[in-house]
Design a binder for these strands. Structure first.
Lengths: 343, 343
DNA sequence: CTCCAAGGGACTTATTATGTCCCTGTAATA
DNA sequence: TATTACAGGGACATAATAAGTCCCTTGGAG
């Protein structure tokens, strides 16, 4: 069932919303029957004419009975209402979830995809697809998109598809940094995004651990300083949120670093910044790129992260960074909401 | 899954047809890729503009890739195509079936509902609902609808819902006849239809087994002859098809009659006429009402019958009576098509 | 070099959806 | 009994969208 809904949401999303609208009307009639058109209108916050069209349709389908005393459900209407309920809840549950999340995390928009991207490959693809679609809908011509690294971002990159607008879009890595697994590196991901979307990209090859002098020299190189400027003036920032525990599990970081993370109770990481559950920055990767103080200048910020284990990290970062949009999955959403309110 | 599709077919039937249309486009692109708009247009028998709108939408959704060489499916597009296939087949299987049935039975229109109405209550309701909807769509004001008897017709009657048009519709029994179970009698069904749809009705109380003199006298009564005239000038005839074996199972008919049916190899019955597998009338109930020679005068003829056991009877009657529309179920449809071609 | 088929733009027309207003009937109530 | 509030339905102008039609540029194959 979920499959069909998911497929339909891709192939005919607006029609699902129509289904939902009609379901809502049916449901309201059921609760208020017998009810007149005007009452329904105000109750459903629709204009009278639209409500009327819907009701006419429902009558045509034999789902509502329309008499002088008002409208009532037919037996069939009731049957449809009851049988459709679980599907609608599934379809709409995410809207509810996202509404609650918006409030809880104080962000403008939340997209939720079904499942758990941590354990379900399809869910991860869904997550990535949603992220990619969001980018597509927000990017205008001649804009710069800064992208961070991580496996989720990689999935997003692979989900991008070409659009004329992207031809004049430049993808830049949010931060430099060499040494991570190449396919999770921001540089690589920026290039993949550009390739899959038909856009351009710039690289930022700044090693992680270099001396201050070397760093200063590097940042004065035109190639590098150009990219740095582009990053700071990016119109869209797309990043993911890493889980501190997963980070700690990776071998190449020294024990010392791991201890530091644990000591400071880091729960997550985003484009080089490590933070604890309160959103306090506890560590910063030493490399060039987008700095925290540049964030407010970024036009749109899109966080893409899913999986129950990242719930804490997502909640933490959203409560501190000014967020525009969070793309997450059902598992993370429910986990976040089940945690105690931070206030 | 079937549930969702069924519900959607009631709540938003156009949703499904649009989904199907887009699926078809996806599928065709997949087969012909890379393909141009003009080739697709002719291949899909769509106008160019419509095809273009669909393709634009699919591109927007990231399902097709659109380049100078032509259109291709994206990875997502392929995924949707594959996952959607079983659903579409289920949804569309019936269209295919109905197409084949039209040809086989040489009738204008065939409606097929899912399942087996003989064993599945929901399927029987679906069948009845389809029949009722069909009546609704065909009846105009001040027309007469002649209805036959039987349990299927009863279900149709119960599925009728009121419409303004029906206020000026008169339902009459296709044939008289008293003695059958009252709830399966044409008289009763005509009255139920009228009641459920908000229309008027007339009764035809002519006993089955009476002497010729009594019959002649009765038919000269104004009340009865009036109704008889209405029947003969009915604009719509709705009837079902009974299975001879089931008929034979009913006790109240004499052994003699049963033997007759078996002797003449009767397979089915409709509004009082019994016929064999070739459609030859082998017996006629002795009562007043619609006669065979009046059939061509009837504007529209709707046969509603389902269940595998009625397949033979359906095929037989359709091959002889000039049919307009058959409403049947999947079980009967498949059974009919699996039988050898009568020619 | 030419030609064909590709996508895309632009414009008109047809169709549908929507907003708005008013009418009539009915049932409860003063 | 008169009144009032609320029921559905009709009518119509207008906004929005879909669809039909024609033409343009471009890139690759012959």
């Amino acid at each position: 069932m979920r499959t069909l809904l998911t497929l339909q949401s891709q192939l005919c999303p607006d029609l699902l919303s129509i289904m939902h609208k009609r379901y809502t009307v049916l449901r309201r009639i059921y609760y208020l029957q017998p009810v007149g058109r005007r009452s329904l209108t105000s109750s459903l916050q629709m204009t009278e004419r639209i409500l009327r069209s819907e009701v006419d349709f429902l009558r045509e389908q034999g789902l509502v009975n329309i008499a002088q005393a008002g409208m009532t459900l037919t037996e069939q209407g009731l049957e449809v209402l009851q049988k459709l309920q679980p599907f609608i809840e599934e379809y709409l549950g995410y809207s509810q979830l996202s509404g609650e999340l918006k409030e809880r995390l104080n962000i403008q928009e939340v997209w939720i995809v079904p499942g758990d991207s941590e354990h379900d490959e399809w869910a991860k693809k869904e997550l990535a697809r949603a992220g990619a679609q969001l980018i597509k809908s927000w990017v205008r011509e001649d804009q710069v998109v800064a992208v961070a690294g991580g496996s989720t971002m990689q999935a997003v990159a692979e989900s991008m598809s070409p659009t004329p607008t992207f031809k004049r879009t430049t993808f830049v890595p949010a931060r430099g940094g060499v040494g991570d697994a190449v396919e999770h590196e921001a540089n690589y991901i920026a290039s993949r995004m550009a390739k899959n979307s038909g856009g351009r990209y710039r690289m930022l090859h700044v090693p992680d651990q270099i001396s201050e002098e070397a760093y200063q020299l590097l940042t004065q190189e035109t190639q590098i300083s150009d990219v740095l400027h582009m990053i700071q003036e990016a119109s869209v920032l797309v990043y993911s949120i890493g889980d501190a525990k997963t980070m700690a599990g990776r071998r190449k970081y020294g024990r010392e670093f791991m201890q530091l993370l644990e000591e400071k109770q880091a729960v997550g990481e985003s484009f080089g910044y490590y933070f604890d559950r309160n959103g306090t920055i506890v560590h910063r990767t030493k490399t060039a790129g987008l700095r925290l103080r540049d964030l407010p200048k970024v036009g749109r910020k899109i966080a893409v992260a899913g999986g129950a284990s990242k719930a804490e990290a997502i909640a933490a970062i959203c409560s501190v960074f000014p967020q525009d949009t969070l793309v997450t999955d059902e598992a993370a959403a429910r986990k976040i909401l089940s945690q105690n309110h931070p206030l």
